[in-house]
Amino acid sequence: MTVLIDPPQWPGPRGLMWSHLVSDSSLEELHEFAARLGVPARGFDRDHYDVPETVHARAVALGAQEVSSYELLRRLVAAGLRRRKRR
């Protein structure tokens, strides 16, 4: 059971760069970690939380594993937790 975070490299609101926070085992684990991190529920999007660069170091300090965006997506898919947008 691991919570993963990719580098803050995605432009987003307030001029900040953003990361994705996911679990490679369960959404419950992800929601619990996000709550401990203080990330609001509105940051959840289907299978991940969007978190600003200002939260990245704290997420790692709490135990999130830093991985590349590619590795994050690979492990999310392998866990069967990837939820694509519906068209």
Rank of each mutant, 00 (worst) to 15 (best):
W10E: 04
H48N: 07
A78I: 13
T54E: 15
H48Y: 10
R74Q: 06
D47G: 07
M17Q: 14
L62F: 08
V22K: 08
L76F: 00
S26Q: 05
H56Y: 14
Q65E: 14
L73I: 15
A34E: 01
V22S: 11
R74S: 05
A78M: 08
S23E: 05
S19R: 09
D6T: 10
Q9I: 12
V67W: 04
L27I: 13
L73K: 14
T54P: 14
A35H: 07
R84A: 09
S25K: 07
P8M: 06
G12R: 06
F44C: 06
R87S: 10
L62A: 07
W18F: 05
R84H: 12
P8C: 09
V39Q: 00
S68I: 02
H20S: 03
A59C: 11
H31F: 11
V51N: 12
D47S: 08
P13R: 11
L16K: 13
M1Q: 14
D47K: 02
P7C: 04
L81E: 07
Q9H: 06
T54Q: 12
K85P: 15
D24W: 04
R75I: 04
R46I: 08
R74C: 11
S69P: 11
R75H: 02
A78V: 06
Q9R: 11
F33Y: 03
D24G: 00
